[in-house]
Design a protein around this nucleic acid. Sequence first.
DNA 1: ACATTAAATTCGA
DNA 2: TCGAATTTAATGT
Length: 224
Amino acid sequence: MTKTDDTLDQAVWSRDLTPAELDRARAGLTLRVYLKDSTVCMIGEPFTSWMGVMDGLLKVRSVSKEGKEASFAGMHAGGWFGEGSILKNEVRRYEVIALRTSNIALLDQETFMWLFENSPAFSRFLVRQLNERLGHFIAQVEYDRLLGTTTRVARTLALLLNRVLYPDVGPSLKITQEEIGLLAGVTRSVTNQALKQLEAHGAIRIEYGGITVLNAELLRTIVE
DNA sequence: ACATTAAATTCGA
DNA sequence: TCGAATTTAATGT
């Protein structure tokens, strides 16, 4: 078992591929380690690869068309991103930073396009993922209108729990309060207060170095 | 920014 | 390899 075999094994989109498609995918995969605080990709960079988080935590800072407001999102194990840029063949509209040292898999553009055009299972996966993201963009419109901090933190956590984007995610997240703060765009102490509120409402349980979500639906819908 | 507590690591037997 | 001692990391205020 090589490392790329491992990677393929863990990737959701590989599950229904034919053996031939799997071989092709394996040949297009590269693994990289991004150290904490390093830049994974920059705004304006032409597309090079589709990326998957094997392990770690990334922060995606996306900027609106006019370069105005920025919004954040987290990316953790199991998540794949960049398909929007590759399909439209445009430059990246967001910047990605490693919040902690992370193992990232890269699938080169050529292989990605080959799979997209030749593998029904792969295309099906992509449609599902793109559709899911569309829903997020709609939710984001509301998000940017200064909601309360507790709500922002709640939504940040809810996004990390998304079953479509992170198929293997369970109710317990290994993420520090500092990291949650970076993702939600609030300070650590505000994060701490927000988490306490969420815990008081029974939405989560605070643990050392992480949280467990008790009521995901409440997390998604709560407004302070 | 500081004090407290939890976890991870080191080290001696 | 066990656990006590020390260091590092995360939390709460």
